[in-house]
Design a protein around this nucleic acid. Sequence first.
RNA 1: GGGGCGUUAGCUUAGAUGGAUAAAGCGCGGCCCUGUCACGGCCGAGAUCAGGGGUUCGAGUCCCCUACGCCUCGCCA
Length: 468
Amino acid sequence: MERILIKETKEKVGEKVKVVGWINSIRDHGKLTFIDLRDRTGLVQLVGKELPKISNESVVEVVGKVAKRPEKLVNSNLETGGIEIQIEKFEVISKAKEIPIPLDTDGYDIEEGTRLKYRYLDLRRERLTKNIRIRSKAINFIRNWLTEKDFVDIETPIFTKTTPEGARDFLVPSRLQPGKFYALPQSPQQYKQLLMVSGFEKYFQIARCFRDEDPRADRAYGEFTQLDIEMSFTDQEEILKLTEQLFTDLIKKVFPEKKITKEPWPRLTHAEAIKKYGNDKPDLRKDTKDPNELAFVWIVDFPLFVKQEKEDFYHGIGKAKYAPSHHMFTAPHPDDISMLDKDPLKVRGLQHDMVLNGHEVGGGSIRIHQAEIQEKIFKLIGFDDKQKKQFEHLLQAFEYGVPPHGGIAPGIDRFLYTVLGERSLREVMAFPMTAGGTTAVMDAPSRAGEEQLKELGIKVTESRDKKK
RNA sequence: GGGGCGUUAGCUUAGAUGGAUAAAGCGCGGCCCUGUCACGGCCGAGAUCAGGGGUUCGAGUCCCCUACGCCUCGCCA
């Protein structure tokens, strides 16, 4: 006999069916026992007599007859509340021990360390199951939408090279080249620009990114996912339009209960945002208490450079008065190029931030494709020949026919966390890390064995070792 | 790297001023219950009070250190 899904049982009144799943709850009335059985499609009530001893969350297989419930016994809170299954055969497939954390609540008041230790159970919680499923739906929608628009989904390497910019890198020691390290990518930035040189013209990737910086509620430690997009022969207008269309369609399809405050999305210059709202990620919702309101806003015309405080370095390398406000490949506004020499701080960059309900959910820019402008930027941020050499591969690629290009990278976790109104990014990730940088369930990082370290040519000093 | 708050039963918490046999709800176990769906009733088990050190006649409570959790500043091209 073939198993049917719980949501299908309500169509089978009078029939004998087989269902499988987890025991959601048990109500034992002595002679008569009610069990709520759960599978991935929902709950259904089972009724039986003289059942074997069974614990919550055990996995069982049940054969029985689907019976219509009398009018006054219908449970309108359950999708299958109009029927119940009269147990004929009840088999325990896998008995569950006492579950260490309650699963029938939203889980917010349980200490997160405990939830993450038992994340595989925590994920049985309805709220998390929903979040993870809707994440899948959203990503699937994005993939299909972009693919239809002629974008190519391309995977870029996870083992890559450390570059002297941005956040702290995660390093992976090389065995074949002892003493050398790979870096995990902070974003596929350089690869996607190389793909433009390759002529794909339209690229996207649901890309995993890695940054070794301390976390916040809206910033996960370690790894996160972004929708990475790059286009050739484009301009800022096209990038904004495309992104806006994609996310508007996504919300209408996957989050139909949400409403967007203003369409098309308003645009503010960086200067306007600072002046009017005091920050560059304003919350433009009319009613911040309405969980279904989504207020998008574009922030454009960022200053290309920020002034360096003190005798500061640009991330420990470029010794200069200026640092890029986005990154060093952001193109200057064409109207401002003449000011690059005279007054760099007045130069606007072709950069755009996508802001939703006061959260920066994405950023991007038109990139520089002309060698002489790139050269000027390097000079202004104080790069010497040695530092420039770190980007030689990209500059060299640009010598073989580079199309004008640009893109954007909305954060998937950040977007979902904002749309779903969650209190932490971890609530939309299946297996997030703790703020202290240990992984859920597996408790990484862990010590490496002597042999492993030896192969990698790594010595752990005594003092370091004692620390933990 | 700095700061804040926290750590008492499986979970969530209560334990003013130092003086209990460390308390409750949920969960768990046993018994009773044929219409519950947050079932109900009775009984019961369950705690090295995060770990270590100190002050004191006496520490869950005060002090110090460590670990862990969450938040935050720095940081996050």
